[in-house]
Design a protein around this nucleic acid. Sequence first.
DNA 1: TTTGTATTGGAATGAACGTTCTGAAATAGA
DNA 2: TCTATTTCAGAACGTTCATTCCAATACAAA
Lengths: 193, 193
Amino acid sequence: MPRTKQFDEKEVLNKAMELFWEKGFHATSMQDLVTQLGINRASLYDTFGDKEALFEAAFQLYRQTNGGVIQGLFETEPSVKEGFQKLFQMAIDESVQDGNRKGCFVVNTITELIPGDEKIQSLLLENTINYEKLFTAFVQKGIQNGEINAIKNPNEIGLMLYALFNGIRVLAKVDPNPEKLKSIMKSGLSVLD
Amino acid sequence: MPRTKQFDEKEVLNKAMELFWEKGFHATSMQDLVTQLGINRASLYDTFGDKEALFEAAFQLYRQTNGGVIQGLFETEPSVKEGFQKLFQMAIDESVQDGNRKGCFVVNTITELIPGDEKIQSLLLENTINYEKLFTAFVQKGIQNGEINAIKNPNEIGLMLYALFNGIRVLAKVDPNPEKLKSIMKSGLSVLD
DNA sequence: TTTGTATTGGAATGAACGTTCTGAAATAGA
DNA sequence: TCTATTTCAGAACGTTCATTCCAATACAAA
């Protein structure tokens, strides 16, 4: 009976993600979204709700996409040291290649929307703890397979590497210099030796 | 001849800094500033110029204050390892004690205003490079006084510690847990051993 | 082809935005 | 005390904000 949608919902959400990722929540206006997404105002509201709901959907899409990549890398990579190196190198490459200097959507959101809305705040906390566990477990795996000295504390090292990962994403926004970022990675990963 | 100012310029700028620091550039309105600063709209514009100029002045005040503290610490602290530990502990304490979860004004500004205005962008780059040099030079000092093994690369380590410093400020915003942050510090500073 | 329902385009809403303006108030020097 | 000059209070400016509304449109089922 009804008229069919003239746009692909996933495609549109992807564009919204890019926009919020680049400009942040407050600096992105609904007008920006209407223009860039190429769909009508009313369709935007009918499909995704208000600005906050759309942002949250876009953020979740980012989490899902990136989280999947990292989890996949950790699961398939037999060497833990190489796994971490690949992960950091991926982040560095992304920063260096991104002409828009978007940085990391998660980091951007943490710094922009805390303090603030409680919903997004708990989402950010949950996300962080997930990543910390992922990092820690991967270090643990390295200890179990003998790659990493069993004296090391996997929790401490996992947390540290995740913090460093975030720090790199901040610095890469100011100065996307591959050599410099590689130095940081090298020195950071030396804690695994 | 003229009527004298009824407010202390430095005091007002300090309040503006707090507000921008907590909410960021875009989420802070001129109305917020007028209300919180307790001075008149016209006085605000006459004294500091427009919103952008006021933000920049507030940001410079933050840089000046914080940069002075760090530089002072590095100059007076005889032990490099202890110096770094004190620095990180200061950042952790600040994060844990700050009920408003403001985080670091520099990190917040990097993630909010890049990409964007070129003026603030080059200011941020200059600031970052300054800090990196400061960190690197302090590691160098540790090598010279025999505290740190001369095999180490001071540039790599300095950059890494500065990246980690920024990462901690991000994570502390999501989860200001002192034990966790201390673990990160401990593991990070182990590169100096 | 007709009918019913969801989508669409675009105008319209009122509030909030950054900024400017005007006139009254206040004070240091003459 | 008078005068010159600046600050101050608050209204007013034109834009932009997020959101809603209303016909007009388009399409699946009858």
